[in-house]
């Protein structure tokens, strides 16, 4: 058997381990193998999320077909799919490593993926505000998550956006403001530099 990489229809390069049938079994009795496959799954999931700009991953995604995760959680060429208990294990490992957070909290079936860390999102956000001339004006969250021109922040979930703004607020680069229909934000230029 040759384990080979594969390029999906969306142009994502799956690692060669993904072509291996045992990759889709939770190797419960062999901890080193379980650890290796879990690591490989985490890498693949985060890379795919970044590739497709996907923010959420649900255990359900492994239970159903026809969702945006099909290309990764299933391999039709060898007729294998990731069992939901294995996905749960992967998700909980990601949460312990801060590569994802349960969103909403107090459940363990849906995570918000950190394929960029909140700090990195903060940098991206401030860069975007600077580049598009939005410094010192008040923006609604909606204007950021759904801008007229697509941006790296298009579709960013509000919890993540808020987290990123809080990161910026620590260094006085942004401020959350209450506005008539919810929340808004004002970005500032870096001071004294």
């Amino acid at each position: 058997m040759h384990a080979s990489t594969f390029t999906t229809t969306s142009g994502f390069l799956l690692p060669s381990v993904h072509s291996l049938p045992p990759f889709f079994t939770l190797q419960a009795a062999c901890p080193p193998a379980l650890a290796k496959f879990t690591d490989d799954w985490i890498k693949t999931i985060l890379a795919y999320a970044r590739h497709r700009q996907l923010f959420f991953l649900k255990v359900e995604d492994a239970e159903t077909t026809g969702n945006e995760w099909d290309e990764v959680l299933k391999n039709e060429r060898i007729n294998r799919k990731l069992p939901p208990p294995f996905l749960e294990h992967i998700i909980s490992t990601m949460v312990t490593r801060n590569l994802a957070v349960y969103e909403p909290a107090k459940q363990t079936r849906t995570v918000l993926l950190h394929w960029r860390l909140p700090q990195e999102w903060a940098d991206t956000l401030h860069q975007w505000a600077t580049d598009t001339g939005h410094l010192n004006t008040i923006l609604t969250f909606y204007e950021i998550t759904d801008p007229p021109v697509d941006s790296p922040l298009t579709g960013i979930p509000v919890p993540l956006l808020r987290h990123a703004i809080q990161e910026l607020a620590k260094t006085n680069l942004a401020q959350i403001i209450s506005i008539a229909d919810g929340e808004g934000v004002r970005f500032f230029a870096p001071s004294g530099r």
Binding site: P21, T25, Q27, A33, P83
Partner: peptide, 8 residues
């Protein structure tokens, strides 16, 4: 740890 299982 010389092999992996495939339960499918």
């Amino acid at each position: 740890g010389l092999c992996w299982i495939d339960d499918q």
